[in-house]
Design a protein around this nucleic acid. Structure first.
Length: 288
DNA sequence: ATGCCTTCCTTCGGAAGA
């Protein structure tokens, strides 16, 4: 079975590329982020014609997530809300929960497509929102595993965090920036099983032991792409980042331990950053 | 050279992305 995650940066701009990728790569489940459209604007018929059922969470031109599942697979929507309450952004009237999460149960696996808030700048209210959003995700994962330690759960998407210094082309360029800060890396680490932290994030021993001892309240997940698929998943459109190969590794798949044991490989579809109208992210594909 | 790009909208300028 093949499961993929991809921040496509607008389904209406990327439809031919996404359908081509689905068929060519023999993908069974695709978690998409940044569809940038309302549910009514999503090209459902085109997916059906290509042999995929598709589930959509989209409100307007911002954010939005979807999951395509091969038509012959059994799939049920879980929802757009975590058991850990998803926070509202620090703006907007009336207040609304942004479409950044969608869960579908596929073949016994609880699959989530996630678009973690960007954070903007460290001192921006959006940054606190990002941390609160990640805490809601941690709470959900913790609750899932507390209820059933053998649960099969997969939390895929654009995490907007570079967990390790090597996950950006030059860490010196990111001094004082979001995506690499200690609070973000700690929030990412708290999603994980405590004994997988040391190799999963660039944090000092004090921070790792502090988070690691908090095992009664950790997410309990395992990041399952890095060991099979090293390298970056995003290159900014600006400043010729792709041509100069200056990228970031910010797209991941976090699995519950029982599902992590079933992962046999992963790869990054780098070729999707080339050619006509690419997204700035490329797909990450898991093999089970 | 801020190596200035891509997407969206009650659209031709601004917001957001990371």
């Amino acid at each position: 079975m093949r499961i993929s995650t991809w921040n496509i940066n607008s389904i209406r701009s990327r439809l031919p590329r996404v359908l081509d990728f689905l068929c060519r790569s023999n993908v069974d489940v695709l978690a998409m982020q940044e569809i940038k459209c309302r549910v009514s604007q999503f090209p459902v018929e085109a997916f059906l014609a290509s042999g995929y059922q598709v589930f959509v969470n989209g409100l307007n031109q911002w954010n939005g997530v979807a999951i395509a599942v091969r038509a012959d697979l059994d799939a049920q929507v879980l929802g757009t809300e975590f058991s850990g309450k998803i926070p509202q952004p620090p703006f907007g009237k009336p207040p609304v929960v942004e479409p950044r999460a969608l869960g579908v149960r596929v073949a016994g696996i609880e699959c989530w497509s996630l678009y973690v808030p960007n954070g903007r700048e460290i001192d921006n209210p959006h940054f606190a929102y990002k941390l609160a959003w990640l805490e809601a995700l941690r709470s959900h994962a913790h609750t899932l595993l507390a209820a059933n330690p053998t649960a099969l759960g997969l939390f895929m998407g654009d995490f907007n965090i570079a967990p390790c210094d090597e996950d950006v082309w030059d860490i010196q360029e990111f001094v004082g920036a979001t995506h690499v800060s200690v609070p973000e890396r700690e929030a990412f680490a708290r999603l994980l099983q405590s004994d997988t932290l040391a190799q999963a994030v660039s944090l000092d021993e004090t921070a790792i032991s502090r988070i690691g001892t908090d095992s009664t309240n950790c997410g309990g997940l395992v990041e399952v792409t890095r060991q099979f698929a090293p390298g970056w998943t995003y290159w900014d459109y600006q400043k010729a980042r792709w041509r100069r190969n200056q990228g970031m590794k910010i797209d991941f798949a976090l699995a519950t331990p029982n599902l992590a044991d079933k992962i046999t490989g992963a790869f990054i579809g780098r070729e999707e950053r080339d050619g006509e109208k690419p997204s700035d992210h490329v797909p990450v594909v898991l093999e089970l």
